[in-house]
Write a protein that binds this DNA or RNA. Structure first.
Lengths: 177, 177
DNA sequence: TGTACATCAGTGAACGCGCGTTCACTGATGTAC
DNA sequence: TGTACATCAGTGAACGCGCGTTCACTGATGTAC
């Protein structure tokens, strides 16, 4: 992570993802945006796939960190789930690249395995809260909840800011039965 | 739709989508699978994009038809939503191409607009049921519910058959508050 | 019935293009003695 | 301090490749007279 040129390449990718998505992002685009020579790309990344995985990791790591920070001092349960969700949605609003990383990432064969692992990661967090609430089917519910969270993030991105309507609708799904 | 060669091209695409997804599907692949000359492709479709849109429409139309058939004689409400969902999930289990059409379609720039329109279509159906249940945020809830439905379809596809666990978890999200 | 012409799905070689990747090279910095 | 060598990020021209698309052509079928 620490090397400045490597960082410049990652940041260029995030900028490009905002406008053109992951699927259409070529190595040419990235090096042009980062203003380095094409060969430099391959000094820092084995190939295009490795680069896309790094991009996604960068995004996920930042998001998870902020969710963990927001929920660290709370006991498992509905309130913790709401707070984690809020941190997640707030984090997604930070950058428009989110849309590409949330949507494209799942269907890019190159990184779909990585994405699956990361989604399961978030689902694991939600699962603990559902279990603490005594909810049946906690594991499956958690996985379904995570995709609702992603969709909620996209909906907020559409309007460009946090939406009480979206969050209220999402939270309504938390306590059921 | 009626022309046999056009149908052969669509069917070839569905077969390819099972294994390789929409993103990596080239015109070369399609004509090879359909066993026609490359030029024939352009007799029936203006370009690759138009073809992908047709593929997705074919998939969506079949699915919607079966949802409508399953719910036609029911009043709006929770039971209708459950029946529609069941028909949706059963329909998705019919073909493995579903995975590609559900996931890839959203991030392929070529057809993302079409997909959005179609997702809103399903969300509209769910919205009427949420409204009949007197649920607040019915519109937003419906949109969130639709993506849970898609995720549920993928989960069932992973195990290759209908799953009571998945459907129970999904139905649990219907009555909340 | 026979002849001339129109229509149109189908063909496949050929095209230009942008892609991911390679590689011989440069030049700055660090290390050894 | 000066000289020789090693390291390594950075460079950009060049590569082969597969892609989407085009187009002049074929051949079967339908229509007119």
């Amino acid at each position: 992570m620490s090397h400045p040129t490597r960082e410049a390449l990652i940041e260029a990718g995030l900028r490009l993802a905002e406008n053109h998505g992951l699927a259409g992002m070529s190595v040419n685009d990235v090096v042009a945006e980062a203003e380095v020579a094409k060969g430099t790309f391959y000094v820092h990344f084995r190939d295009r796939t490795a680069y896309l995985v790094s991009l996604h990791q960068w995004f996920h790591d930042r998001l998870k960190e902020s969710v963990l920070a927001a929920t660290a001092d709370l006991p498992h349960g509905a309130e913790r789930l709401r707070r984690g969700t809020t941190a997640y949605l707030d984090g997604c609003l930070q950058g428009k690249a989110v849309k590409a990383l949330l949507l494209d990432a799942r269907s890019e064969p190159a990184i779909s395995a990585e994405v699956q692992r990361r989604n399961a990661d978030f689902a694991g967090l939600a699962q603990e809260d559902f279990e603490a609430m005594g909810r049946p089917h906690a594991e499956t519910s958690a996985r379904l909840y995570v995709v609702m969270g992603a969709e909620a993030a996209l909906m907020e991105l559409e309007v460009g800011k946090a939406s009480n309507e979206v969050r209220a609708a999402l939270f309504q799904f938390i306590e059921c039965g």
